[in-house]
Design a protein around this nucleic acid. Structure first.
Lengths: 221, 221
DNA sequence: AGCTTTGGATTGTTTGACAATCCTATGATG
DNA sequence: CATCATAGGATTGTCAAACAATCCAAAGCT
């Protein structure tokens, strides 16, 4: 086994930090990212900044306009709706595959993650909820056994997060969300692919609806 | 309307040329892409080459290993199979959406593209087939009205092309392929989403099977 | 007010440099 | 002779400095 730990070059760190800053909303959608300033903030050279930005462009978190430079991606509702459409398809498939293929250890781990999520909901621990959700999804996508689905959904989730920062949605949706995720996991535990797919569909559908109302509220506000 | 023509910077051209070189098989999968040499070949500086490579990395056509540099992505059969799984889902959806939403003009254009494809098959014009296929897909993805599906499928097609160059597959499959595509278009013309989805599924399934045998032949050869 | 010009800010691209890392071939050693 | 260590070259990772091209906004002109 290869346990080497890569010295994690300057660029990778820069990409991570910038990604975090974007999805956390520290850089707002539409905001321009001036290269010189990023050099200052990150303490690295312009060449490295530019390469880091190209990577984030690949993840669709940054859009680089010729002769105007990079800015944080702005997500229209139309685009977001299309992303939800794709999520419906792929998360449904991922759940069905996980129901078919997940090992006992993976089921157990998902159970733990969902437990942590439910606990975080009970204690209203926002950061805990986010972490537990991410973990739950990571496990499910790993269990589904399709690396391409994993990769695509990871990207779509990141993009949908671009909405969140602005709309600060779903304060009250957490309990429902927990129930929906519980339904997915139950189906996986019972090795019922069709039920798992259906539960995942409902979950995405609910998230989409919630985002839509949050978006509408924001629009008028 | 904005008809401005961008002076198309050095980098974009470099990306295009490299992409072409990769999908055409001029650079073989696994081959290392030494920066200095690309500088020579493209006649541009190292910085620009590196940014171009980062973009191609985002398209998954190039994989950059730390301290080893970039090389053309190698596609295992396992990965290819996963891509076909996703294509089944998304192309099916795209076809169904196109059946629902395509305008008369779009239907007509697809008809023309498919006609060109059939003609190219009849005259055994390999380049014409490729061009017509690409056009047919472009039109269908445009007609489906979901830019996210479009974007993802575009990437997956490019990745699958990485197999083609090696396996030089499907010399005889073109006529069947034409029939399958005709089935898709017929369903779209009749505005029958379910039928269109099914036809698209069959098409991807057939392409997957063909790739599999081509892969197996190559393995023993 | 509306148009033009000008100047500053920012990006696009190049060149040159150097440390860190990897790979290979050479040489040392048992 | 086989194996291990070492040295050297090749390649990448990163930086710094420079300059032309482009864009944007504000000042100036009519």
């Amino acid at each position: 086994m290869d346990l080497r730990v890569t010295p994690q070059g300057v660029q990778s760190q820069a990409v991570d930090k910038l990604r975090e800053a974007i999805v956390s909303g520290h850089f707002q959608p539409g905001q321009r990212l001036v290269e010189a300033e990023l050099c200052r903030l990150l303490g690295i050279s312009r060449g490295s900044v530019r390469e880091a930005l190209r990577r984030l462009e690949g993840e669709r978190l940054v859009v680089i306009t010729p002769n105007r430079g990079p800015s944080v991606t702005e997500l229209s509702w139309e685009e977001a709706a299309q992303i939800y459409d794709v999520r419906r398809l792929l998360e449904g498939e991922a759940a069905a595959l996980a129901a078919r293929r997940a090992t006992a250890a993976q089921r157990e781990a998902m159970e733990a993650a969902l437990g942590a999520f439910e606990a975080a909901v009970a204690t209203e621990d926002a950061l805990g909820r986010i972490a537990a959700t991410a973990r739950f999804y990571d496990l499910m996508l790993a269990a589904c056994g399709n690396a391409v689905i994993d990769e695509i959904l990871r990207g779509l989730h990141a993009r949908i997060n671009l909405l969140r920062s602005r709309s600060m949605s779903r304060q009250g949706r957490a309990p429902e969300s927990a129930r929906e995720m519980r339904a997915i996991l139950s189906a996986i535990q019972e090795r019922a692919p069709a039920a798992a797919r259906k539960a995942a569909l409902l979950h995405v559908e609910a998230a989409c609806a919630a985002a839509k109302v949050a978006m509408a509220e924001r629009r008028v506000a």
